[in-house]
Simulated scan of single mutants.
Amino acid sequence: MDTNKLLLVIIAILLPPVAVFLKEGAGKHLLINIILCLFFWVPGLLHALWVVTKS
């Protein structure tokens, strides 16, 4: 696993919206992740991990 991807996975576990922002920038994925994190933390975490690990 690439070092940058590993660091993004760690950030995704701690702060999911930050990891999505670092990977995709300000866009639809960031907005989706913020909404998911507001309702409940786990869906936001899963979404962030998906965004960070997809190629």
Rank of each mutant, 00 (worst) to 15 (best):
L46T: 02
L6M: 08
N33A: 00
F21G: 10
G27D: 06
I10Y: 10
L49G: 12
C37F: 03
W50I: 07
G25V: 04
V9F: 10
G44Q: 13
L31E: 03
F40I: 09
K23A: 05
K5E: 12
K23Q: 08
W50T: 13
W41L: 12
L6W: 01
I13N: 03
G25N: 09
L45Y: 14
G27Y: 05
L22F: 12
L15T: 11
F39S: 13
W50C: 11
L15D: 10
I34F: 11
P17S: 08
V52W: 00
P16Y: 02
H47I: 02
A48F: 01
E24G: 00
M1G: 14
P17T: 09
A48K: 03
L6P: 00
N4H: 07
L22K: 06
H29N: 13
F39P: 07
G27T: 09
N33Y: 02
L22Q: 11
E24D: 15
M1A: 12
H29Y: 15
N33L: 01
L6I: 11
P43L: 04
L36M: 07
T53Q: 04
L15P: 03
I34M: 11
C37L: 14
I35Q: 08
I35W: 11
I32G: 00
P43K: 08
T53E: 06
K23S: 02
F21D: 03
A48V: 03
